[in-house]
Design a protein around this nucleic acid. Structure first.
Lengths: 151, 151
DNA sequence: TATGTTGTTACCAAGTTGGTTACAACTATC
DNA sequence: GATAGTTGTAACCAACTTGGTAACAACATA
């Protein structure tokens, strides 16, 4: 089983936004080109990032900016923004174990703390990496790339 | 997004098998009662556990036993047995980023190590917990429970 | 007003999941 | 050998999620 690809895509969006100089306009069209999908899908993900307070998108005229510094956005922030639909559960427990069985009766209570711990380990790791860090792994923006975006 | 409930169910199965004295026969019927589902689903999961070498099921006469000691089975073993369908990927990368974009071209290579690290953190945590440990959190098997299983 | 962009809705095909039925194959016992 | 109980597996289903797509109103700038 696999988590959705929304998370990696969201990271890519943030990297591009952070990587592009402020004077250029990063539209969902441009982002869609890089991810190789269509703008509506980008806007959908961008919506989650906006709700989470990671980016600000100016409606109408277009263009996305980071809502806070790239070194203040971790992979965990992104993960939470786009993947956490319901609550904090990474592993879904079986809904209704048999309450008459001595094991089934308490299985969820016994299991939960350990699953929480595993989830926390995952999140701690994601928290160690910032968007700034990832951006620094790419070549700097070059004016030649300006064809990809609009002023 | 959420991982399937197969994993927690598989853990529950192993706990019951480990918890039940050897002289009792733990059939998929009994396990289904505890999980509150039907035997076929149990056999499906039990099949994965068998393939992974965690349990041995005697076909025909019925009954599941642990294939190795309960303290030698970790949650990671179970996780891998039932959740890893394809390869080691927890996060699915976007299949085809645009190779003409300086970001899209390398995004997967840059992201992969960090996602791997996060996955490893998750797995390390799961590896700390054994089935034996979980069994010890339940009351011991009582002859009164024998109605749940058959000799 | 005209243009370009966003936000959102609606819909679709594909894949996954848990659930269920059915049945052949198997093993022990009578 | 026949019987009974069980496993292994296939087939199918409804519900859900996902990525993809089209469409269009709302918006902001020129």
């Amino acid at each position: 089983m696999q988590l959705s690809s929304r998370f990696p895509v969201a990271v890519q969006l943030l990297i591009i936004i952070a990587w592009t100089p402020d004077k250029y306009k990063v539209t969902s069209e441009v982002l869609a080109l890089s991810v190789n999908t269509n703008p509506a899908l980008i806007r959908r993900i961008l919506g989650s990032l906006k709700t989470a307070g990671l980016v600000s998108v100016t409606a109408g005229t277009g263009g996305a900016k980071l809502a806070r510094a790239a070194q203040a956005i971790t992979l965990l922030d992104v993960y939470r923004a786009v993947e956490l639909t319901s609550d904090d559960m990474l592993f879904g427990l079986h809904a209704t174990p048999n309450s008459h069985c001595p094991i089934g009766k308490n299985i969820n209570q016994v299991l939960q703390p350990h699953l929480d711990q595993a989830r926390r380990a995952l999140e701690d790791s994601l928290q160690q990496v910032t968007i700034q860090q990832l951006v620094s792994e790419f070549p700097p923006f070059d004016s030649g790339y300006a064809v990809l975006v609009s002023k």
